[in-house]
Write a protein that binds this DNA or RNA. Structure first.
Lengths: 334, 334
DNA sequence: ACCGGTCTCCAAAACGTTTTGGATTATACG
DNA sequence: CGTATAATCCAAAACGTTTTGGAGACCGGT
C-alpha cells in the first residue's frame, strides 16, 4: 500500500507518482520535486515482488556453486562473487548463490531456476568439456555467462584464462632453468581447464624437443600425493612438476617431503590458482593467477548486456592472460 | 498466465486448481489427482513474484558478507552457506549472498534489505562488541540470527563457539607442556570473539599463576608479523604464542622464521579457525575449529523458526564447544 | 474564434497468485 | 419429506507496481 499511500498524501494519482519516481518526461518538474521529496520523507521503497510481477523480471542473478563438503578452492569463487555482486548491485540486481554438488541433482537446480523464472540470468562456473548445463541453457531463453570454456557447441558468452599459453610459458621457464625432466600432473580430462593446461605443457615440450611425462589424477591433494609418489619412484624421476592446480601442487609438496626430497633443490613445483594456502606452504608455492577482478567485471558486464537483450556474439568471448606468481618452489635442477 | 491456463484446460476455476495444488481438504480427491497430473504434464511452476506479492513474503534469506578485497578467511563463510543453503532450500527459501565491506555504506545495505522487504530473514556474521547492525535490526520486524556474540543489549538468537573456554584450555595445555612464558596475540577488542578469547587466556594464566603477556593488533598476517617481531625482541620473549586467529598465527610463523627461530622447538604457535592454509604451513599449524556444519544447522533452524513467528528466547542462544586441531606447531619448550 | 500541438495528469488494466465468503449440490439425520 | 451438515466448487478481491490510452488545460498561429 505504498505508492497508493504516497499518492494519497500528495493528492496525485498513482500513475503520476510512479512516473515521477521513474523519471519520465511526463510529469512537471515542480510535481516531480514534490514527489521526490515526499518519497524521501516517507522512506518509500518500491515493493520488489510487485515490480517483478509486473515487469516480468526478477532482478536476480544466480550463481550455482558446484561445491561439495570440504572443498577449499572456493575463495576463488567468493572473490569473483564479491566483484560481480558490486557490479550487479549498481544495476539493481541481487546476486543469489546456490550450492549444488555436481551429480544427478545438479540439473534439477538449474531447471528450477529456469522454469520457475527465479533469475534473470545465470553464471556457470567450473566448466566441463561436455557440459550438460550449457547444453540445457542453450535450449532456453535464460541469459547466461560462463566462466571457463567448454566443447559444448553453441554461441554463448564466456571468460576464461589462457591456460594453454600460461602452461606453455611455465614449461619453457622451467626448461630455461635447465630442467629436462619436466612432468605434468594433469587434472581429469573432463574438465576443460585440465585439457587446455595439458595441451600447453605438451606443445611446449614438443617444441623444446623434450620427452613428455604426464600423469592424470583427481584435482585434490590426496590424489596428487599418491600420483606424485608413483612418479618419483619411476625410472626417470622428473626434476620439475607442473601441476594443473595448487591443490594438486600442495599434494606434491607433501609427497616430496615424505620421500625426503627437498623442494626446490631436488624438485621444482609449480601450481595454478594462487590459493592462499600456497603462500604459506613450505616452501611457498610458485603458481599462476587468473585476474579475478577483471574476470568478474567482464562476466558481469556480459551478463547484464545479455539480460538487456543483446544477442551473444564473439565479442562476448574473452580469453585473458594469466599472471605468473613466482615464489620459492622453483629453482634450477641440481 | 499459468494457473489460469491450467484451470482453463481442466475446466476448473483458478481457485480450485490453486487449492488442489496446495493440498487443501477443500477439493475432491479425484479432482486433486486430475489437477496434479495436469500440472505435472504441463510443467506448471508457480510464479514466484506473484506468490511473493500475494503472500507478502519473499522466500529469500540473506547473508551479508563483510568482505573486502583480498580477504581469505572466508572459506569459513562459504562452508557455512553451503550447509545453511541446503536447510533453506528444503523449506523453499533461497539464500542470497551480498557483499558489503564494513564501513559507512554497510548499514545502507541492511536498510535496503529491510525497508525494501527484500528478504524474510537475515544472517549477521563477524559480530562486533558494539554492533550497529544488531541494534538496527532489533528495532525492526525483520527476523535475524547472529553468528557470534555481541554486547549489544537485546534478545536475539545467536550461535557462537565457546572461545573463552577453548582459549583457556589451550593455555592450560601449553602450560602442561612446560611453557611458562605464554603470550597472547589478540585481535582488535572491538570484535567480540577477540575479547572472549583474550579473556579465556587471561583467566587461565591467572589460575596458573603465570604472568600475562598480551599484544593486540589487527587480525591479519602483516600486523601479526610486526607485532610478533616486537614481542620476540622484548626482554622476556615468550616460548609460546596463542593467536586469536589462524591468519595471525601464519604471520607469527613468518616472523619467527625471519628471526631464525624454529617452530616448534624455539616457539610454539597456536591459532584458531582451521584455515586450509594452516594445514600446509611450515610447520603445520596447531589450531582450533568451530564445527561449522553444526553451527550452520542451528542458525538455519533458528532463523526458520523466527520467520515462522516463533519469538526469540534463550533456547535460541547456543554456545557450542570448539574442537582442538593439534598439528605440528606445538612442542615443549627447550 | 478555431485548430493542432504540447504539457500534465489520470483511470483502469494487467501481471499470477492466494484467500475470502459464499453458492451449489449431495449426504445424513430426524 | 424437510432440513441441517458436509463436501465441492467458484467469483471476486487483493497484493503493489507499470503501462496503455487517453483527457483536460494551455499555448501559439491563423
Amino acid at each position: 500500500m505504498s505508492l497508493k499511500l504516497l499518492a494519497a498524501t500528495l493528492n496525485l494519482s498513482i500513475t503520476t507518482v510512479s512516473r515521477a519516481l521513474d523519471g519520465y518526461g511526463d510529469v512537471a518538474p515542480a510535481t516531480r520535486d514534490r514527489v521526490m521529496a515526499a518519497a524521501e520523507a516517507m522512506q518509500y521503497r518500491p515493493n520488489a515482488a510487485a515490480r517483478r510481477l509486473r515487469r516480468g523480471s526478477t532482478e536476480v542473478v544466480s550463481l550455482v556453486l558446484p561445491t561439495g563438503p570440504g572443498r577449499f578452492d572456493e575463495p576463488l569463487y567468493l572473490e569473483l562473487m564479491s566483484v560481480m555482486g558490486e557490479r550487479f548491485a549498481e544495476r539493481g540486481y541481487d546476486l543469489t548463490l546456490l550450492a549444488a554438488p555436481p551429480g544427478p541433482d545438479e540439473m534439477k537446480t538449474y531447471r528450477r531456476l529456469v522454469e520457475g523464472r527465479r533469475a534473470d540470468g545465470l553464471i556457470v562456473v567450473r566448466t566441463r568439456r561436455q557440459d550438460p548445463r550449457i547444453a540445457y541453457l542453450l535450449g532456453t531463453k535464460m541469459p547466461f555467462v560462463v566462466m571457463g570454456r567448454s566443447d559444448t557447441p553453441g554461441l554463448y558468452p564466456f571468460v576464461d584464462g589462457d591456460g594453454e599459453a600460461a602452461f606453455a610459458a611455465a614449461t619453457r621457464d622451467l626448461a630455461a632453468l635447465g630442467h629436462r625432466h619436466i612432468a605434468h600432473l594433469a587434472a581429469p580430462a573432463a574438465l576443460t581447464y585440465a585439457t587446455l593446461r595439458r595441451a600447453g605443457y605438451e606443445r611446449a615440450m614438443d617444441e623444446l624437443g623434450l620427452p613428455r611425462q604426464v600423469v592424470e589424477c583427481d584435482a585434490d591433494e590426496q590424489a596428487a600425493r599418491a600420483a606424485c609418489s608413483e612418479l618419483l619412484a619411476g625410472a626417470a624421476p622428473p626434476t620439475a612438476i607442473l601441476c594443473a592446480t595448487d591443490r594438486m601442487a600442495l599434494g606434491v609438496l607433501r609427497a616430496a617431503r615424505e620421500r625426503g626430497l627437498s623442494v626446490p633443490a631436488d624438485l621444482s613445483v609449480v601450481g595454478h590458482d594462487n590459493l592462499p594456502a600456497g603462500a604459506y606452504s613450505d616452501p611457498p608455492l610458485s603458481t599462476m593467477e587468473l585476474p579475478l577482478a577483471e574476470t568478474g567485471d567482464l562476466l558481469a558486464r556480459m551478463l547484464l548486456a545479455r539480460i538487456g537483450g543483446a544477442p551473444p556474439d564473439d565479442t562476448m568471448q574473452a580469453i585473458i592472460p594469466i599472471r605468473a606468481v613466482p615464489r620459492g618452489s622453483v629453482a634450477p635442477p641440481r
